[in-house]
Design a protein around this nucleic acid. Structure first.
Length: 330
DNA sequence: CGAGTTTGACCTGCGC
DNA sequence: GCGCAGGTCAAACTCG
């Protein structure tokens, strides 16, 4: 499904709709003009691969926080393939645990605390790697760790992160049958940056009775984009990833890029939005169009980035241009 | 009292 | 095989 048309100034869709429906980055780029004066949005998608799941210790060195929250999105490795089934289904790990518990009662064996952890009997065969949900990470300049994104989350764990004084928090969507999780951690190199990683796909609408309903964070006027940015103008309502990244890139080069994204909303809303958008992209195609564009962009701006971005950007760049973008096949 | 958070224990995967 | 780090669980706790 596409949201592009909804962002026609005359008929925009609500932010919530986008959250659920999965608009694509392009429309988002257009919608927000993508020249965040107060927010930065980077996005990328990664397709199947077997990389280590962790890789979030990316740093956005864009500095100069405009004033609102800045957001950088990047996707993490994740074996995407066909995650939709998982999203609609149960959370596997949790479930397996219950199963093992039941099993334990039969065996009469218990671990400490009476917790009996997964026996794996319910899991996939040996050697079969557990399929991971697609992930999508955002880096947000924010004071608060847990940014409101319209969904309800329940914290289920917190872990200290190696090489970081800041812990990582684990949240799960409280909606039943929704297996979406997110991790929130603060960058140790830039404490003002919060890294939010979404995993999974919401299979339900955004709760409406939320204190910080995402829908309310983005008013239509925010979503409707007036003038196309220089970079997105070419494709107008259907900009490309290149537009997206182009804008972002240019943002690096000249911070006063002309476009919007001047919302003061918290960036987590965007996170969701981007996340869902990623889903849509994953589901619809992994084709090469966007990848190629992105790649071009990368080539064009690479050197500059290296100059202006912190050392960590190398890593970031890798993540920003993961396989999905780079694997464009003829 | 229900929902959410905290926290220590445990599991899993991966690198050495 | 071992150890480490990440991820998850669930009892205990807090809060409205």
């Amino acid at each position: 499904m596409f949201c592009e048309k909804q962002f026609d100034p005359s008929s925009y869709m609500s932010f919530t709709e986008c959250l659920q429906g999965g608009m694509d980055y392009n429309s988002l780029a257009t919608s927000f003009g993508l020249s965040p004066s107060s927010s930065e949005v980077f996005s990328s998608i990664e397709g199947n691969n077997n990389q280590k799941p962790e890789g979030i210790d990316v740093l956005l060195g864009s500095g100069s926080g405009g004033g609102g929250s800045e957001t950088l999105a990047t996707t993490l490795n994740s074996s995407i393939s066909s995650s939709s089934s998982e999203a609609g289904g149960e959370e596997d790990s949790g479930k397996s645990n219950k199963d093992s518990q039941a099993k334990e009662e039969a065996s009469g064996e218990t671990s400490k605390k009476g917790i009996n952890y997964r026996n794996k009997e319910n899991n996939k065969k040996k050697g079969e790697k557990k399929q991971k949900e697609p992930r999508f990470a955002f880096m947000t300049k924010s004071e608060v760790d847990h940014l409101e994104d319209g969904y309800r989350w329940r914290k289920y764990g917190q872990k200290a992160v190696k090489n970081s004084p800041y812990p990582r928090s684990y949240y799960r969507c409280t909606t039943q049958k929704c297996s979406v999780k997110k991790r929130v951690e603060r960058s140790y190199q830039d404490p003002s940056t919060v890294i939010t990683t979404y995993e999974g796909q919401h299979n339900h609408p955004v709760p409406t009775s939320l204190r910080g309903n995402a829908a309310s964070m983005f008013t239509p006027s925010m979503l409707s984009i007036s003038a196309p940015t220089p970079l997105s103008a070419a494709s107008n309502l259907f900009p490309t990833h290149q537009d997206l990244f182009g804008s972002l890139s240019s943002h690096h080069h000249h911070h006063n890029h002309s476009s919007l994204f001047t919302t003061t909303t918290n960036a987590a809303g965007l996170s969701s939005l981007f996340y869902n958008h990623q889903q849509s992209i994953n589901n619809n195609n992994n084709n090469s169009n966007n990848s190629i564009l992105l790649h071009q962009n990368n080539n064009n701006n690479n050197s500059n980035h290296q100059q202006q971005l912190p050392p960590e950007y190398g890593l970031l760049q890798d993540m920003l241009l993961p396989s999905m973008f780079l694997k464009q096949e003829p």
